[in-house]
Design a protein around this nucleic acid. Structure first.
Ligand SMILES: NC(=O)c1ccc[n+]([C@@H]2O[C@H](COP(=O)([O-])OP(=O)(O)OC[C@H]3O[C@@H](n4cnc5c(N)ncnc54)[C@H](O)[C@@H]3O)[C@@H](O)[C@H]2O)c1
Ligand SMILES: NC(=O)c1ccc[n+]([C@@H]2O[C@H](COP(=O)([O-])OP(=O)(O)OC[C@H]3O[C@@H](n4cnc5c(N)ncnc54)[C@H](O)[C@@H]3O)[C@@H](O)[C@H]2O)c1
Lengths: 221, 221
DNA sequence: AACTTATCGTGATAGTTATCACAATACCCA
DNA sequence: TGGGTATTGTGATAACTATCACGATAAGTT
């Protein structure tokens, strides 16, 4: 095991999250042991990359054999902090917010939606999910801090993103996942991640418009 | 202007997409000219990074002055291929698909949703957006190729992601944006991008569980 | 026209991440 | 029990990306 506190590449963390998925699927197929080669095949990552990623955190495999599917899954969950429940709140129950609230995957993977807020009076009280009623934005600080929400998801329009983030910080959340196309500012001790679906599509458009049939990039100089 | 065909960092492309956003907001505020410093301030990127990103594609600024807000916006759109319309189809009109279809941002930025498909007979014919009716999945190849769809968005369950991607390829799309948590395989000449919202949250969970109050990362060795 | 100021464009440099290659070693079987 | 095989864990290396520092230069000013 390497020592703690060396910098772990962000890309490694992203891959670990996908490994869990692939491992669970392989486990469903009856695979009790996986090699880095097989796992790599299944999640389209090179075997060496997988071993390197894991080696940042310890030794989880058996040389000559591979990794025990179930226990590796658990180990990775521990690494990512998914072995506990993260109380989460969502602000802005519009189209996207509604989709996220109904995304069962989250619940199955360590996140618990403890409250949802919106500023539209017409939406207050609506049940968006088993036992979860939309609350007025004015209740955010009170409710979120009472529920000890650790994560806040922002799905309000860009123009309200900053004020929403401010409320979440006031309520004591430690991390914010922002879907609005606006770069909000938060204090240093708050972890912020932006998800830009538009950028993903734009990236696709870029690749398509610059890909001439069969052209190969990578030309040096 | 540097020569074409050198490798552009993917991160650069992602940033260019966000620059457009910030530039449009600055333009709304009446800023006709922006310096890399001001733009950097607004989108939380270092001025040097912005200049470097742009320099991959040409010289767009005026030394001692800055960049003309409007024309830089247009230039970046050309770089990303957003100066034309991308006919796009979406498959799987569930919670997420519905949100994406109603996301006006896309329409305003060069993407035109030309068709939406689902396998649920109960959904066929429903109007999801001005003039856009859900079609049966059996019509995908016919409709998408007739409409010359270039991009396909996959929002079906993971178990159907591969077969959906196969249909899109058959229909002649050139790029696929996949939201399902399954690594689909496509031919070499198809551009594929995966969007993993779960990974984003997991990344947040990781950062939160490893951040001790006030600890500073970056310790060497 | 020379001088000043602001800010760009970019080569050089530092830092980060991925790939490679192989020593280490657990299991299997005779 | 010892030799063969498969597959890990990791140091070294290569590739990529960001940062820095400064020369270049356009516009305004005297
Ligand atoms: N729809 C998508 O597919 C999609 C994709 C990527 C990003 N986004 C971004 O996500 C955000 C939401 O998108 P959407 O399509 O769901 O929009 P939407 O208009 O459907 O939903 C926004 C919701 O936020 C609520 N709201 C507005 N101001 C608020 C405030 N100050 N406090 C609390 N609630 C408030 C509104 O009442 C509404 O219910 C936007 O910033 C959008 O750019 C959406
Ligand atoms: N909801 C979210 O916020 C969210 C977030 C991230 C990723 N995702 C992923 O996006 C996908 C869709 O999620 P969702 O929440 O919208 O699910 P959903 O069940 O609400 O929607 C899936 C839709 O796909 C349709 N469908 C199923 N099989 C199909 C097929 N073979 N061809 C065409 N249509 C088919 C279904 O009829 C349904 O309408 C899933 O893979 C999910 O993991 C969802």
């Amino acid at each position: 095991m390497k020592q703690k506190d060396i910098k772990i590449p962000e890309a490694t963390i992203k891959r670990l999250s996908t490994y869990i998925n692939c491992l669970e699927r392989l486990d469903d197929k009856g695979c009790q042991v996986v090699s880095s080669e097989l796992l790599g095949e299944s999640c389209q990552v090179s075997p060496a990359q997988i071993r390197k990623d894991l080696s940042y955190f310890g030794e989880f495999g058996v040389r000559g054999v591979g990794y025990a599917t179930k226990s590796l899954t658990e180990e990775i969950k521990v690494i990512l902090g998914l072995d506990c429940i993260w109380p989460t709140v969502l602000v802005g129950v519009g189209h996207l917010g509604h989709a996220l609230l109904n995304f069962t995957f989250f619940r199955e993977h360590g996140y618990r939606m403890v409250a949802a807020f919106d500023s539209d009076p017409g939406k207050i009280g609506t049940e968006v999910e088993e036992g979860l009623h939309i609350q007025p934005i004015e209740k955010l600080v009170e409710t979120a801090s009472r529920e000890k929400a650790a994560i806040g998801i922002v799905t309000v329009p860009a123009s309200s993103a900053q004020s929403t983030a401010d409320l979440l910080v006031e309520a004591g959340v430690r991390g914010i996942l922002n879907f609005a196309p606006f770069k909000v500012r938060v204090p240093d001790n708050i972890t912020l991640r932006n998800v830009s679906i538009v950028s993903e599509l734009d990236n696709l458009a870029y690749l398509l418009s610059n890909k001439k049939p069969r052209r190969r990039l990578k030309k040096k100089k």
